[in-house]
Each structure stands twice: as C-alpha cells, then as structure tokens.
Amino acid sequence: MDEQRLNHLMRQVAQNLDRAAFAELFDILAPRVKASLMKAGLDSATADDVLQDAMISVWTKAGLFDPARGGVFSWVFTIARNARIDRARRAKPLAPLDLMDWEPADEADTSEEQMVKASETEILRQALLTIAPEQKEIIELAFVQELTQAEIASRLGLPLGTVKSRMRLAYAHLKKFLEQKS
C-alpha cells in the first residue's frame, strides 16, 4: 500500500474537494472497510449502511486528517469504528469523541516524527507478523471480530484475566516495535 499516494489523495480531497481523488480513495478503502464490517459479524445490508456513513465521513472530515498524527488506515479505522457504533446506537447516538476533533494543536508532531508516522502502518504490519500466535489471536478477535474482553474469554474458554494480560503483552510488543523503529 502506497501511503504517500494515500496521503496525497487525502490532501486533494481536503483542500480541493477533488471528487476524482475521492473516487480513487473509495476504491482502495471501501472494500477493506467492508471486509472488516463483515468480519465483525454485520449482515451485508447493515455493513453497506455503515460503509456509506463511513465513506461520507471520510469526505466530510478529510480536512481534519493530519498525516503527522497517524496513517490513513489508522484514521479510517477509527472513522469506520465510530460509524459502526453510531449505527448501533441509532436510537441515541453517542459516538466516541473524535480525537482529532479537539486535540490541542500544540501536540502536533515535528516533521521528523511525521516521517516515522507515515510508515507506522507498515511497521505495525511487520510487527504483527512477529507477535506470539496466542496474542495475535486475541488482538484479531478484539479489532477485527470486535468482541468484548468477556466475549473473547468465553469464546476461547480462558479466564478474563488471561485475556487482559495477553492484550497487555501484545500492546507492549507492538509499541516496542514502533519505538525501536522511530
């Protein structure tokens, strides 16, 4: 995945409301968001509804995307997650706060950090290949299948404490990877 290209397309959408750039982004992002929604157990019709909401948010919020604060995939992941939660709580919408909406500007990273962040998705993809299988399993159940800690425990027949400690180990491992590479 060419992150430079993705960042460029995001910039085109944000600055010029460039529909052709958005159409190209759509073709890269939408099929992956759809795959994640299907893996999370949504039926095809609901997944399509959430996908529409998410892709429209990509358009309307493109101006809030800041490559210094993380990669496009990481941003789109949060957009899709919030769209899913919004749908589920339609009766009384209360999506999580969007971190980029209110984060103080003075936390913006230096240009040196930007270069690292730009490849953060790639670093993490590599790191996920090196993680212990029992930890990776739990990370995927949480992020891809979108199960709660209690649901993971019951699915795997493990005590809740074991699920939590494997999540902590996985996070520590991945974070170390990010820090080593930066």
Partner: peptide
C-alpha cells in the same frame, strides 16, 4: 494513537470485500 494504528494495520491487511458500484454511486 498507537492502539488505533494497530487497528489501521489490521484493516490494511484484510482482503478486500466486493463493494457494489451502486453503493459507490450513492456515496
């Protein structure tokens, strides 16, 4: 942010699922 990036990396690794052209047109 680091935790969200894990979600992003997993998302980028998924095999794409077909999206209908009518959905794209609607968006």
């Amino acid at each position: 942010k680091a935790a969200n990036a894990i979600g992003g990396a997993l998302l980028s690794d998924l095999s794409p699922a077909p999206v209908s052209s009518s959905l794209k047109d609607a968006v």
